[in-house]
Amino acid sequence: MGYLSFAGTILGGLFKKPVTTQYPLKPAVLPEELRGRVLIDIQRCISCGMCMRKCPAGAIVVDRSAKSWSINRFACVQCATCVDNCPVKCLRMEPQYAAPGTVKQNETFVKQAAAQPAVAVTLVKGVTPTASAPATGTQAAAASAATAAKTAAAPQTTPPGDGAGHA
Protein backbone atom coordinates (compact mmCIF):
# COMPACT_ATOMS: atom_id res chain seq x y z
CA MET A 1 0.00 0.00 0.00
CA GLY A 2 1.36 3.42 -0.86
CA TYR A 3 0.90 5.15 2.44
CA LEU A 4 2.22 2.27 4.53
CA SER A 5 5.59 2.21 2.74
CA PHE A 6 6.93 4.82 5.14
CA ALA A 7 5.69 2.94 8.22
CA GLY A 8 8.91 0.99 8.52
CA THR A 9 10.96 4.16 8.71
CA ILE A 10 8.62 5.72 11.27
CA LEU A 11 8.72 2.68 13.53
CA GLY A 12 12.47 2.44 13.16
CA GLY A 13 12.83 6.11 14.04
CA LEU A 14 10.88 5.62 17.24
CA PHE A 15 13.19 2.93 18.54
CA LYS A 16 16.62 3.55 17.07
CA LYS A 17 19.33 5.71 18.64
CA PRO A 18 19.61 9.25 17.26
CA VAL A 19 22.30 9.73 14.63
CA THR A 20 23.07 13.26 15.70
CA THR A 21 25.59 14.10 18.42
CA GLN A 22 23.88 14.55 21.75
CA TYR A 23 25.49 17.85 22.69
CA PRO A 24 25.01 19.37 25.33
CA LEU A 25 23.70 16.27 27.10
CA LYS A 26 27.02 14.65 26.38
CA PRO A 27 30.17 16.80 26.49
CA ALA A 28 31.62 17.91 23.16
CA VAL A 29 34.63 16.03 21.85
CA LEU A 30 37.18 18.74 21.12
CA PRO A 31 40.51 18.06 19.41
CA GLU A 32 43.47 19.16 21.49
CA GLU A 33 44.78 21.45 18.76
CA LEU A 34 41.64 23.58 18.92
CA ARG A 35 42.35 27.21 19.73
CA GLY A 36 39.78 27.78 22.46
CA ARG A 37 41.07 30.26 24.99
CA VAL A 38 44.39 31.57 26.29
CA LEU A 39 45.67 30.44 29.69
CA ILE A 40 48.70 31.72 31.54
CA ASP A 41 51.07 30.20 34.07
CA ILE A 42 51.32 33.46 35.93
CA GLN A 43 54.16 32.47 38.19
CA ARG A 44 56.48 32.20 35.20
CA CYS A 45 55.38 35.49 33.65
CA ILE A 46 58.07 38.19 33.59
CA SER A 47 55.70 41.07 32.72
CA CYS A 48 57.68 42.00 29.59
CA GLY A 49 54.48 43.12 27.83
CA MET A 50 55.37 41.40 24.53
CA CYS A 51 51.94 39.75 24.33
CA MET A 52 50.25 43.11 24.89
CA ARG A 53 52.17 44.73 22.03
CA LYS A 54 51.66 41.87 19.59
CA CYS A 55 47.96 41.23 20.20
CA PRO A 56 46.09 42.28 17.03
CA ALA A 57 42.86 42.75 18.96
CA GLY A 58 44.34 44.67 21.90
CA ALA A 59 42.81 42.20 24.34
CA ILE A 60 45.72 41.87 26.77
CA VAL A 61 46.81 44.41 29.39
CA VAL A 62 50.03 43.85 31.31
CA ASP A 63 50.84 45.93 34.36
CA ARG A 64 54.50 45.55 35.19
CA SER A 65 54.43 47.26 38.56
CA ALA A 66 51.45 45.28 39.81
CA LYS A 67 52.75 42.11 38.08
CA SER A 68 49.30 41.47 36.69
CA TRP A 69 48.17 40.08 33.35
CA SER A 70 44.61 40.58 32.28
CA ILE A 71 42.75 39.53 29.17
CA ASN A 72 39.40 40.60 27.74
CA ARG A 73 38.11 37.23 26.56
CA PHE A 74 35.42 38.87 24.46
CA ALA A 75 37.97 40.84 22.44
CA CYS A 76 40.36 37.92 22.03
CA VAL A 77 40.23 36.35 18.56
CA GLN A 78 42.14 33.19 19.53
CA CYS A 79 44.92 33.76 17.03
CA ALA A 80 47.64 32.47 19.43
CA THR A 81 50.07 35.28 18.57
CA CYS A 82 50.68 35.87 22.27
CA VAL A 83 51.45 32.18 22.74
CA ASP A 84 54.00 32.24 19.91
CA ASN A 85 55.72 35.44 21.04
CA CYS A 86 56.00 34.88 24.78
CA PRO A 87 59.75 34.69 25.59
CA VAL A 88 59.30 32.40 28.60
CA LYS A 89 56.47 30.34 27.08
CA CYS A 90 54.09 30.80 29.96
CA LEU A 91 51.00 31.13 27.72
CA ARG A 92 49.13 28.26 26.12
CA MET A 93 45.90 27.66 24.21
CA GLU A 94 43.33 25.36 25.71
CA PRO A 95 40.61 23.62 23.66
CA GLN A 96 37.85 24.79 25.99
CA TYR A 97 36.19 27.92 24.67
CA ALA A 98 35.71 30.91 26.98
CA ALA A 99 32.37 30.81 28.77
CA PRO A 100 29.65 33.16 27.50
CA GLY A 101 28.60 35.94 29.81
CA THR A 102 26.27 38.89 30.08
CA VAL A 103 28.92 41.47 30.92
CA LYS A 104 32.18 42.10 29.04
CA GLN A 105 34.89 42.09 31.63
CA ASN A 106 38.57 41.40 31.92
CA GLU A 107 39.99 38.33 33.58
CA THR A 108 43.04 39.25 35.64
CA PHE A 109 45.83 37.10 36.98
CA VAL A 110 48.27 38.54 39.52
CA LYS A 111 51.64 37.02 40.17
CA GLN A 112 52.09 36.11 43.80
CA ALA A 113 55.44 36.86 45.40
CA ALA A 114 56.80 33.36 45.84
CA ALA A 115 58.00 32.48 49.35
CA GLN A 116 61.24 30.63 48.78
CA PRO A 117 61.99 27.85 51.27
CA ALA A 118 64.86 28.68 53.57
CA VAL A 119 68.05 27.00 52.41
CA ALA A 120 70.36 26.03 55.15
CA VAL A 121 73.94 26.83 54.33
CA THR A 122 76.43 25.13 56.52
CA LEU A 123 79.55 27.10 57.02
CA VAL A 124 82.57 24.94 56.71
CA LYS A 125 85.40 26.15 58.83
CA GLY A 126 87.79 28.26 56.81
CA VAL A 127 85.62 28.44 53.70
CA THR A 128 83.39 31.44 52.98
CA PRO A 129 80.22 30.67 51.11
CA THR A 130 81.00 31.61 47.48
CA ALA A 131 78.41 33.05 45.14
CA SER A 132 76.62 30.71 42.78
CA ALA A 133 76.52 31.80 39.10
CA PRO A 134 74.80 35.19 38.68
CA ALA A 135 71.08 34.84 39.11
CA THR A 136 68.93 34.66 35.96
CA GLY A 137 66.46 37.41 35.31
CA THR A 138 63.49 35.63 36.85
CA GLN A 139 65.28 34.85 40.02
CA ALA A 140 66.61 38.37 40.23
CA ALA A 141 63.09 39.68 39.86
CA ALA A 142 62.05 37.57 42.79
CA ALA A 143 65.06 38.67 44.76
CA SER A 144 62.80 40.34 47.25
CA ALA A 145 61.82 36.90 48.40
CA ALA A 146 65.39 35.65 48.66
CA THR A 147 66.18 33.31 51.45
CA ALA A 148 67.67 34.38 54.73
CA ALA A 149 70.93 32.61 53.91
CA LYS A 150 71.14 34.19 50.51
CA THR A 151 70.32 37.67 51.71
CA ALA A 152 73.25 37.44 54.05
CA ALA A 153 75.54 37.03 51.06
CA ALA A 154 73.44 39.13 48.68
CA PRO A 155 75.40 42.37 48.60
CA GLN A 156 78.50 40.54 47.35
CA THR A 157 76.89 37.97 45.07
CA THR A 158 74.26 39.92 43.17
CA PRO A 159 76.05 41.77 40.38
CA PRO A 160 74.97 45.39 40.19
CA GLY A 161 72.27 46.04 37.65
CA ASP A 162 71.26 42.40 37.36
CA GLY A 163 67.88 43.13 38.90
CA ALA A 164 67.16 45.45 35.97
CA GLY A 165 68.17 42.79 33.44
CA HIS A 166 64.67 42.52 32.02
CA ALA A 167 63.63 46.07 31.49
Binding site: P31, E33, L34, R35, V77, Q78, A80, M93
Partner: peptide, 9 residues
Protein backbone atom coordinates in the same frame (compact mmCIF):
# COMPACT_ATOMS: atom_id res chain seq x y z
CA UNK B 1 39.82 21.90 13.35
CA UNK B 2 42.32 19.09 13.83
CA UNK B 3 45.04 20.57 11.66
CA UNK B 4 44.81 24.31 12.22
CA UNK B 5 42.90 24.73 15.48
CA UNK B 6 39.94 26.59 14.01
CA UNK B 7 36.90 25.56 11.98
CA UNK B 8 36.42 28.73 9.98
CA UNK B 9 39.29 31.09 10.69
Amino acid sequence: EKTTGGRVI
